[in-house]
């Protein structure tokens, strides 16, 4: 096809004719802005921003396009012009599509109950480009999104309509993902400095970490005087006895104190984050993380409950889930 430039020129001229024509007209959001979709979005993104919950919640601004999506429903708003343009590209072998750019400006927050309407225009169609995926054309649309008739944001979106460069590989040439040699477990690939610091395990505290591996949080108990102790040590500070056994923590506790770490950043921890000093129901204290609670919502006295979390293929840590009331 590279040997037929004039053919492309003529084709490109036909494509260019669509610039400036509407792509979607009087589109209506399938649902008003609503809490369930916001919550599903936040769950998927792992976004715990408290601005997106509660009575004064706003929708995540980056959801802007989501409110315009048709899902599996028909798209009555799509114009004939846009359908024709995409049809031309499909027929010329550029049937595959991938989104490449997204530019969004947010003029005002969207809140549950906002009714969404939108209009879209074909801003530009590129000349033919050679890409890693294959040759194709970039199509850029701009959408104005309104809430209750008021402009709330604009959304410029670029897709590549392309002819796939490679035939799909023969399945038997593909690496078997079940073969451990071929498995790309991201946790296996973490550089050492990107992983959490390892627990410091020696003969005096190995029993604690063996308990963690079994999802048990074990407290030492002096068999001489019965005093519970944490951290683990070979002898009792109350009576000096070297004899001890263990009791399993119930898992209930409260935040005795906490620190919110802001600076300096460490590769494996994303500040700000809270580190708690947890007082277990049994009376001993342990440093740990308070999870499930935004860093700025951790408070002294907050009830917490033990859980075990895996951080990489080697590391499981006892952490504490905040119990909000």
């Amino acid at each position: 096809m590279n040997g037929e430039p004039e053919v492309h020129e003529e084709f490109e001229a036909r494509l260019k004719a669509y610039e400036g024509r509407p792509a979607a007209a009087t589109g209506v959001g399938r649902d008003p802005v609503n809490e369930p979709m916001i919550r599903h979005w936040c769950e998927a993104m792992g976004d715990t921003n408290p601005a997106y919950t509660g009575p004064n919640a706003i929708a995540p601004p980056t959801m802007l396009q989501a409110w315009t999506m048709a899902g599996l429903s028909r798209r009555p708003e799509r114009t004939a012009a846009y359908d024709e343009l995409l049809g031309l590209l499909d027929e010329s072998g550029h049937h595959a599509v991938v989104a490449t750019d997204c530019e969004q400006e947010y003029l005002r927050p969207l809140r549950p109950g906002d009714e969404i309407t939108f209009d879209s225009v074909i801003e530009s169609v590129s000349e033919r480009k050679t890409t890693k995926l294959g040759p194709g054309y970039f199509v850029t649309t701009r959408t104005d999104i309104r809430a209750g008739g008021e402009l709330a944001g604009t959304h410029r979106f670029r897709i590549l309509k392309y002819a796939p460069a490679r035939r799909p590989k023969d399945p038997k040439d593909r690496k078997d993902p079940k073969d451990p040699k071929n498995r790309k477990d991201p946790k296996d690939r973490k550089a050492p400095e990107e992983r959490r610091p390892r627990p410091v395990v020696n003969r005096d505290n190995a029993g604690f970490w063996e308990g963690v591996a079994r999802h048990e949080l074990l407290i030492q108990r002096c068999t001489g005087c019965g005093t519970l102790r944490f951290p683990w040590l070979p002898g009792c500070n109350s009576c000096g006895s070297l004899e001890w056994d263990t009791v399993e923590a119930s898992g209930e506790g409260t935040v005795y104190s906490y620190v919110v770490m802001h600076h300096p950043p460490f590769p494996t921890f994303a500040p700000p984050y809270a580190v708690g000093l947890i007082e277990l129901a049994e009376g001993v204290r342990i440093i740990s993380n308070v999870v499930g609670v935004p860093y700025d919502k951790v408070r002294i006295g907050m009830p917490v409950r033990l859980e075990f979390r895996r951080y990489d293929e080697e590391l499981v840590l006892p952490v504490f889930q905040g119990v909000t009331r």
Binding site: R196, P197, P199, V200, N205, P231, N289, L315
Partner: peptide
Amino acid sequence: AALGWALPFGL
């Protein structure tokens, strides 16, 4: 080991 009780949690 004494310091090791805090480090994995980011303190």
